[in-house]
Amino acid sequence: MTKKGAIKLESLLPITAALIIAVALFGCFRFYTLKLNPVSDVLDINSKYTDILLEMRADTLLTAKAIVGENNVTLLNAKKENIASYAITDGKLIRTDHSKKSEKILIDKLKNGAFWTNANLPNLLTVRLLPADPAEIPFFTSFALRGYKHE
């Protein structure tokens, strides 16, 4: 005795095909959107560091003088106009653009950070940021103040 279904095989095939295609598309979507956690963390911190690097590099190209505070630095151009300032407050590095009067959080979850210029190289601004997560690399680099004039 053979079983007879309510739905014919011919009408089931497109439904089955559609479901398989939908699952395959969902699989592709997950493949391109999901990231493994360690990789995404690395990408996350690297992209934040790249933002800091690009912002500070653009600012220091015009900077003639850097006024360094305990946890902040203010960059001035040759006309002594304020270009931008960077401050570490509550574990966040905040860039303040004085021309646009805007603030931007470049990175958060910092353990500490510092800005300094060296006595032998007053036209070199060094930045050091230490993330709260010890597994993440520190940010350490320097920027030559391209608008600096030796007095």
Partner: peptide, 21 residues
């Protein structure tokens, strides 16, 4: 870009900028 590679880039950037200064 691994973490070592990124830190090496930052250090090379530091050295080049110190040279410019």
């Amino acid at each position: 870009s691994s973490q070592n590679e990124y830190l090496a880039t930052l250090l090379a950037h530091h050295a080049t900028e110190a040279l410019v200064a």
